[in-house]
Write a protein that binds this DNA or RNA. Structure first.
Lengths: 233, 233
DNA sequence: CGTAAGGTTGAATTTGCTCAATCTCGGTGG
DNA sequence: CCACCGAGATTGAGCAAATTCAACCTTACG
């Protein structure tokens, strides 16, 4: 599989290149990581942050009992592990969903927040706030919505975010998350995710096959989710 | 009631005063808010951020169906609504748990991240990262732990955080959250919280009465919670 | 061809929720 | 002073959502 590399690069051509991003100037080296590999292992010491240039990844935490919670889904332009780098140790892991191209940003580039390029400071700040807004939204989603709504909300969020980086079109987008991954995002079991997906399919709201989500009834989807994209501004 | 004002101020005397914090220099005005009042209403436009100087508060989001999810608990030194101010509109509300003293930080003080005092930038950054770390931890807690463990973990977190600001001692601390609040933090119903509390009491792990939590068996509590305070560094 | 990862489905069970009644405790107004 | 009221806490009974356990299937891959 791994066809995503060519997929994303071809799509990226339509948009402002990432190299226009102020953060790009802090990248000292690029690195490629295959699909389903760890970029950063939980507990590891780390001195570089990674900016995701191409592909998709996620942050996760493992629990003593073997459970896993995915705490963020990362898209091109996102910083994978900024705070882990600043502290010097990761209290979470980062793994790829697709083959990824990463920019390495060494600690020295960012360590001194005082005398930093204003553009870079702003770029960091913006991302950090957005990260927080998404985390808050996830808390609401997991804490206060039943399974069907959770999944619908996630699909809505992914649509907006993927669209912003040119990876979604009107009728849907590629989904690299397995049902196990979805379960670990939503705080459900993969068995239950499977069942919820069945009911969504049965009610003609979505299709999900061959790694692609097709949204058949986006109005119904947003209605179920109670989706308001404001937090993704 | 509202005796917390004198409580907190007397306790604060033992520690480094907040006025030593770089952020304190950005405060142009102080404001007092009574217990159980909104500092910021969800959806409101806002041009000032608030730093919590004294007392406790929380961030929350209301859902269309009437539900509520508390997304953060705020302690002295925390910024209540930084990102809402930077965007100019609040996608969440902030309300007090106790009577609070707040410092108002107008947008102009922080708007320009480029040429900002390095100390202030660092202070903002530190808080923002910590905020994110706590939110991640809450995601894990709500997404992957059953009720008893969730509550235990929250109690552990509050202990560490309150201790850091001088509001907890060895055997426990004051709790201003109602069971309804606890439920909205943990993604449970208040009925279930009541039951979980009963089992914790029955197993001699805690006492909770008259607004004070007494930890009878802190080892058992941390064991149940799977608590690792690393994220609160 | 065998194996591993992911997905689906059923049955039994558990966890947590809803609905509802009851109780306590402050505060408020008569 | 006291009756009343509202917020919070507790408890029971019934129910719904989601989990666990398990079997089975498909597909990709070595």
């Amino acid at each position: 599989m791994d066809a995503c590399v060519t997929d994303t690069s071809s799509t990226m051509l339509e948009r402002a290149p990432l190299s226009a991003d102020p953060l790009f100037s802090t990248v000292v080296r690029q690195r490629s990581v295959r699909r389903k590999r760890d970029i950063l292992r939980q507990g590891e010491a780390t001195q570089v942050a990674h900016i995701l240039l191409e592909g998709q990844a996620y942050r996760y935490r493992l629990l003593p009992n073997g459970g896993r919670q995915i705490t963020a889904i990362l898209m091109p332009g996102d910083l994978c592990d900024l705070d882990a780098m600043m502290i010097g140790r990761a209290d979470y892991g980062v793994a790829t969903l697709t083959a990824c191209r990463l920019g390495e940003v060494p600690a020295e580039q960012i360590q001194d927040l005082g005398n930093m390029d204003p553009g870079i400071a702003r770029a960091l700040w913006r991302r950090s706030m957005r990260d927080g807004a998404i985390a808050r939204q996830w808390l609401v989603n997991i804490g206060r919505r039943p399974g069907l709504q959770r999944l619908a909300h996630l699909f809505c969020e992914l649509r907006v975010r993927l669209h912003a980086v040119g990876l979604a079109n009107e009728d849907g987008y590629p989904v690299w998350l397995t049902q196990i991954d979805l379960a670990d995002v939503l705080g459900l079991t993969h068995v239950h995710v499977s069942r919820v997906l069945q009911t969504m399919r049965a009610s003609q709201i979505i299709r999900l096959e061959d790694g692609r989500l097709t949204i058949l009834d986006d109005h119904a989807l947003e209605e179920i989710a109670g989706f308001d994209p404001g937090y993704l501004a």
